[in-house]
């Protein structure tokens, strides 16, 4: 009986309701703020494409703007795929290259020195040597640079920033806090990566986006699944049992999943909890924001 518990597929039957729920969500939660437009970062990946198709259907193409923000190492295929989405949906788009500001920041020796306590460090060289720590820093910096640009466009275009993080990466903490995880509203944050692909199919998203391997594209040939050490398919099945079904890890082990993978996933979820919450506030007064000052964000 228990063994039959598995992550439900989005299929042609349940798609209709899910699609309607997500479109109503975007329409109502955007409309409530007094604007009727969104802006999102379009990477050429599947997640931002799904968010974009949903938004265009909910608000109309004229109310959706996409910003592409490539770095010099970003795959040219990514920009091509993003442009395909733009053309398919006939939405507004902007291209903002981030190479200059990223390189300029990392070229400043003062930061190099304080971080590594080594004034003779050559960052360009280290980067080429495939230094993982530097790559990670640069990746996070790029994600936050993109966030910063998106929020500027949000102001210019009088549009809300639409989120593009799926449930898998939010749970695993596979995202940059205050970077790609930042948004005003997120239509796909409760949908696992495996389901995002199924949803994409019914939304009519081009095959070239659905078929390529998932990548944050923060450096050349980056692969989500290689970096995580497990496939999304396996992780999503396990997270469905741990989170949605609220089964304890030992129960999931008893259902036949590998203990080391379960442990790895469980730890990733716990260690990234801070990314999913607002900063902690030291309680001093009788009524503290979000502790005992409790209102909806939709509070009016």
């Amino acid at each position: 009986m228990m063994l039959n518990q598995h992550l439900p597929k989005i299929d042609s039957t349940n798609f209709k309701n899910i699609n309607k729920l997500l479109m109503n969500f975007i329409r109502e939660e955007v409309g409530r703020t007094g604007v009727n437009k969104i802006v999102l970062g379009l990477s050429g990946g599947i997640d931002s494409a799904v968010s974009c198709y949903l938004a265009a259907a909910a608000l109309g193409s004229e109310n959706v703007s996409a910003v592409m923000m490539p770095y010099k190492t970003s795959s040219s295929k990514s920009l091509e795929d993003a442009m395909q989405v733009v053309k398919d949906l006939n939405i507004n788009y902007y291209i903002a290259y981030i190479t200059d500001q990223i390189d300029s920041y990392f070229a400043q020796p003062v930061y190099n020195k304080s971080y590594y306590n080594n004034s003779s460090l050559d960052f360009e060289k280290k980067y080429n040597e495939n230094d993982y720590e530097l790559k990670l820093r640069m990746g996070n910096k790029m994600a936050r640079e993109r966030m910063s640009i998106l929020y500027d466009y949000s102001y210019i275009l009088n549009s809300l920033v639409l989120g593009t993080s799926n449930k898998s990466e939010l749970l695993l903490g596979y995202g940059t806090i205050y970077g790609d995880m930042a948004s005003a509203i997120n239509p796909i944050g409760d949908i696992y990566k495996t389901q995002i692909y199924q949803l994409a199919k019914y939304l009519g998203i081009p095959d070239s986006l659905i078929k390529k391997a998932p990548s944050a594209d923060l450096w050349q040939d980056q692969s989500d699944e290689e970096e995580l050490g497990f496939t999304y398919k396996l992780a999503d099945e396990i997270m469905f049992l741990l989170i949605d079904k609220m089964y304890k890890p030992e129960v999931v082990i008893s259902m036949g999943y590998a203990p080391d993978v379960i442990e790895k996933i469980y730890n990733k979820i716990k260690k990234s909890q801070f990314k999913r919450r607002l900063p902690l506030i030291a309680k001093v007064s009788q009524r503290t924001i979000n502790v005992d000052f409790r209102y909806l964000r939709d509070w009016v």
């Binding site: 439900p8 989005i10 299929d11 039957t13 349940n14 309701n17």
Partner: peptide
């Protein structure tokens, strides 16, 4: 609240 999806079911 609408919650929970099921395969081959057009209802939450």
């Amino acid at each position: 609240p609408a919650r929970g999806i099921e395969e081959e079911n057009d209802k939450f």
